[in-house]
Write a protein that binds this DNA or RNA. Structure first.
Lengths: 230, 230
DNA sequence: ACCCCAGGATTGTTCATCAATCCAGAGTTT
DNA sequence: AAACTCTGGATTGATGAACAATCCTGGGGT
């Protein structure tokens, strides 16, 4: 009855309500609009999104399945809060995907490589313009394009869930432009090595990138936990 | 009306109905009890499993999310039927996981390697005893143990969904003991090379295994499609 | 300060209902 | 007889209301 669901007016032909709702919630979580730890009260959310409680609960269950929310019996769901173990786990998965993709990039098509360059250019442009959240989005998009070199839809979709979970770490700390800044040339380096066919060097650069990035994200998670203590 | 739901009496403390139902359906699909292509009519299934239509629909949506079922608007869900493209996709993912796991096995713990041997022994024992479906189960379990070397829960869970999808191919063709037979020594070879630390050779053996296995599964899918034509 | 517990709030699940869509089969046309 | 159309039942997609189980907060008693 609320007039809110006008936004829901994306008919998404062939799509069903629960998945459309899941998409919208996923989007909000990724933006940090629904921060980690926030309880997802179904009555309230259902009203807000203009769907029934049943439909909303289906959507939330999908998010739990994807690792974006956690669920405890009779306590409901809440946006997932990453711990250090999760970060290690996530980066183990990233190494598996991305390093393999780089090593196997011999079979990569010309368009696939062009897609890499495109994302790096966009990232650099956003950095020059000072649009920092766009920077991290393009960076993650670059890494998705890397994984796409492997040529498996299933891997791509799984990597999407990994990326979404990674964003949970960013959602807990205040935005720091100079922090985003440092990764731009690192992505560029990997991209150039890849495009010139120097696979071993690209893999090595990417490995260093992932190691450093993992440390940074662990620090973010620790900082968020410390902040929560106080 | 049926007294069937007595089987549902696994309270699974802390678990919720939808996920318990999803587990049971997943199990049935993997056994081939619900063969590929079978429509999942919610009213009927809900009655059979002793849950409400709503709960069943949530469970089915999870299966769709996992790739075990497909969904078309106003036509409901049906058990997924693999095509050749799916098989290639699945094996691309397997190569990514398993080959990387073998290459990184330097960091593997002693127990993890012991787990490999355990599964191969069980597989061989089952083969000698002529329990053929057990053979394929132990084989897949061996490959799961390989992936576990990477040390990422998330990867393990994703690989589980890949394995479940792979079983869809087996569910469509009649059981052929001599077919299962041929893979036993191949798994053994990979296991021994791994345990003696010859990683490069293990990777090569595994690569050949995956290539041959992929061809075999593609043939199975093609045969199933041909059989359906007639 | 500590314990107890009552009752409201939230969750988990079911049920009944309704519109939209599909589908098989009866009837019609050629 | 083959092709076409239409209709009534079945199924799906989604909703809202119900109810038991559990949680949680805050008041009362010690």
């Amino acid at each position: 009855m609320s007039e809110e669901q006008s936004t829901a007016g994306t008919p998404e032909p062939g799509d069903v309500a629960a998945e459309a709702v899941a998409d919208r919630l996923r989007e909000r979580i990724s933006r940090g609009e629904l921060p980690p730890g926030l309880p997802l009260r179904d009555a309230a959310l259902a009203a807000e999104l203009g769907v029934s409680r049943n439909t909303l609960r289906e959507a939330v269950r999908l998010l739990v399945h994807e690792g974006l929310a956690v669920h405890r019996l009779y306590k409901g769901a809440a946006v997932k809060r990453l711990d250090v173990g999760d970060v290690h786990d996530i980066y183990a998965a990233r190494r598996c995907f991305e390093l393999r993709a780089v090593e196997e990039s011999v079979y990569a098509s010309e368009e696939a490589l062009a897609a890499l360059e495109e994302r790096i250019s966009a990232q650099e442009a956003a950095a020059r313009a000072g649009r920092w959240n766009e920077v991290s989005t393009w960076s993650l998009d670059f890494h998705r394009a890397v994984v796409r070199l492997l040529g498996s839809r299933r891997l791509d979709r799984f990597f999407d869930t990994i990326v979404a979970q990674l964003r949970l770490a960013f959602a807990e700390v205040p935005r720091q432009p100079e922090f985003q800044m440092q990764w731009v040339p690192r992505d560029r380096e990997v991209c150039d090595l890849l495009r010139t066919g120097r696979r071993a060097e690209a893999a090595e650069a990417l490995r260093r990138y992932l190691d450093d990035s993992e440390r940074a994200v662990v620090d973010m998670v620790r900082a968020a936990a410390a902040r929560r203590e106080t």
